[in-house]
């Protein structure tokens, strides 16, 4: 019960800090219209840059979103990945050269399809959505990765974006992309997924860990997303202070 109350306290602290930051960023956005902030994670900008290049070459972008279930703890990673891809989906719909999106989870498949359909609907051409743009591939992460990797051989891919909930199985996707000389971009939240992506992606091509959550702020540019990032920064310092305090208390023989 004590754990539950501590968790509730943490959620309330998060909510208050988020609300304060939200108000601050809203005012800042009104005061500094036209001034663009950046999160310092360039990979999200690169997504939309690739759309034009790939459309000119007559190729396709393959986005693999992983197998993060919306109903479990990986759900928010998948939602953050979809935020990071929103500029890409909007621009792809505008060029009418939709990406090929694959997922390994049914709920994520529905969300991704919804995002693409909405992008077409916002342009006033919902009928242009083509079936097969979003594909559900397989239910387990390893089979999903192996099956999605075959697209690098079967389709004419220009870019392969692996963004979402991945573990070491992402190396099957990156290997297929490297073998077929497909440009790679991506990001993973888990340490094993990040470790598999890090060696094949340059510093400006990858988002590791919490960087994945900055995609919304970078491409959607709404004050709520910037407020979320500022809240994350403040909470991170609170966690650091908490860890140091706990270490000092333990060193002094205080507490448990």
């Amino acid at each position: 019960m004590a754990d539950q109350l501590v968790a509730l306290g943490l959620v309330l602290v998060c909510a208050v800090v988020f609300a304060v930051n939200g108000i601050r960023h809203r005012r800042k956005a009104e005061d500094t219209t036209g001034v663009e902030d950046t999160t310092g994670v360039p990979v999200f900008k690169a997504f939309s840059d690739e759309v034009g290049r790939v459309a000119e070459e007559g190729r396709t972008i393959h986005v693999s979103l992983g197998s993060g279930d919306i109903l479990d703890e990986q759900g928010m990673v998948s939602v953050a990945a979809l935020h990071g891809l929103s500029a890409l989906t909007e621009l792809s719909a505008a060029y009418d050269s939709p990406p090929l999106i694959t997922t390994g989870n049914p709920t994520l498949y529905l969300l991704a399809e919804n995002q693409i359909r909405d992008a077409y609907a916002r342009l006033g051409s919902p009928d242009n959505y083509r079936f097969g743009t979003v594909r559900y591939v397989a239910p387990t992460p390893i089979i999903y990765a192996a099956a999605a990797a075959t697209l690098a051989y079967d389709e004419s891919l220009g870019v392969n974006i692996n963004l979402g909930s991945f573990d070491q199985e992402v190396s099957l996707l990156t290997h297929a992309a490297v073998t077929n000389k497909v440009t790679l971009l991506g990001g993973a939240a888990s340490p094993t997924g990040a470790a598999a992506l890090y060696p094949v992606l340059g510093p400006s091509q990858v988002a590791i860990g919490e960087e994945l959550f900055s995609g919304g702020a970078e491409v959607i540019r709404r004050s709520a997303f910037w407020a979320g990032l500022a809240t994350q920064d403040i909470l991170r310092w609170l966690v650091v202070v908490g860890i140091v305090a706990a270490a000092v208390a333990s060193l002094l023989g205080l507490g448990g």
């Binding site: 943490l10 988020f18 703890e73 990673v77 979320g228």
Partner: peptide, 12 residues
């Protein structure tokens, strides 16, 4: 870091 990002995304 990922846990904090998850909490904030969920909160939004």
């Amino acid at each position: 870091g990922v846990a904090l990002g998850t909490v904030i995304t969920g909160l939004r």
